[in-house]
Each structure stands twice: as structure tokens, then as C-alpha cells.
């Protein structure tokens, strides 16, 4: 039984199925997320499958500005994912609201709605950065299962100077 359990734990790290949710991004981040699936980056090497269905997914990749209308959607998608699960927040807008920060309808980042495990800054981030984010998310899962140390604490958008534009977290 313990063997099976340890196999299951290992398998979790080998098969992170993803769902990608766009909260209203300019599509820059989305294109980069989908670029990860192309032959050049081939994220399926790590067992990643783009399921498009929260009920099958382990990792939620979320992009774009979270606002008052779509936060319910984001929350429900997150809730419909069976645990254990991880959330990767991608791009400046999703991290903190980006250039739309402090707009009347914008919530400043996905982490205000759901617990985010990994932040991938950038406007947009490169596919390599996104893949790295997914792999880091697996590290978080691993730590949660007690199988290793937690990855370096990610830079929280709130940690930085709130006055600075979010784009500063990515590459310019």
C-alpha cells in the first residue's frame, strides 16, 4: 500500500495536466502559454497535457486582469479542480493588475481571489519562464506532500513597492 502511495506521489510530479484560463488578457500571455505546447518547447515532455477542463486539471495557469465580473468564474474553476492542485499566475496583469492596476473594475491580481502558488512575471513572460513556473508549481506540490524543500519563495506582487508598475517584474 505504501508503495502504491509513494508511486502516486511520484506520478503527481510526472503528470501535471493543465487548464489555462484567460481572465481578460490582451492575449499576449495566452499566445506564450500555447507556444509551450508547440514542437519547439514541447511541454508534453514533462507530461503536461492541455485539458481545458478543471475537472481533469492539476495546474491552473491563469492570465489577464482579474476583474469583478470574472473573479466568480476564476473561483469556480479553481473550486472544480480536484485536489491536490496548484495555481500559476502568469503575466503582469494577472500578478497585480498590471497597467490596469487601480482601475475601477480591476482586482489587483489573481491572488486576491484564489491562493496562487507561483508567480510568473512578464509582459508577456517567455515560454521558458512559463514552463519554469509549471515546474516550480510541481516543486510546491512536492513540498506539500512532504517530499522535499519548498522552492525559493516567489516574489509576491505585494512585496514590491506598490507604486511601481507591475511590468517591472518582467523583462522589459
Amino acid at each position: 500500500m505504501r508503495f502504491v502511495e509513494s508511486m502516486i506521489k511520484k506520478s503527481r510530479l510526472m503528470s501535471p495536466w493543465m487548464i489555462h484560463f484567460d481572465c481578460g488578457s490582451c492575449n499576449g500571455c495566452d499566445i506564450e502559454v500555447l507556444a509551450c505546447l508547440t514542437p519547439l518547447y514541447d511541454v508534453e515532455r514533462f507530461g503536461v497535457v492541455n485539458t481545458g477542463n478543471p475537472k481533469h486539471a492539476d495546474v491552473l495557469l491563469v492570465t489577464g486582469t482579474v476583474n469583478h465580473r470574472n473573479r466568480h468564474v476564476l473561483k469556480q474553476l479553481y473550486e472544480q479542480m480536484p485536489g491536490p492542485k496548484a495555481v500559476v499566475s502568469i503575466g503582469a496583469c494577472n500578478l497585480s493588475g498590471g497597467v490596469f492596476k487601480d482601475s475601477y473594475n480591476v482586482l489587483n491580481g489573481a491572488h486576491t481571489v484564489i491562493p496562487v502558488d507561483v508567480f510568473v512575471p512578464g509582459c508577456p513572460p517567455k515560454p521558458e519562464a512559463i514552463i519554469d513556473g509549471v515546474i516550480t508549481a510541481l516543486g510546491v506540490l512536492k513540498a506539500k506532500m512532504g517530499m522535499g524543500p519548498a522552492p525559493e519563495p516567489a516574489l509576491m506582487p505585494g512585496d514590491a513597492d506598490a507604486a511601481k508598475p507591475a511590468a517591472a517584474f518582467g523583462e522589459s
Binding site: F21, P54, K55, H72, V73, L74, Q76, L77, E79, Q80
Partner: peptide
């Protein structure tokens, strides 16, 4: 129990 998948709008 979970609601069916309605693109997060269920």
C-alpha cells in the same frame, strides 16, 4: 459533490 462544468459559470 461539484456542479457540472459550465465554463466556470454554473
Amino acid at each position: 459533490h461539484s456542479l457540472p462544468y459550465f465554463s466556470g459559470l454554473a
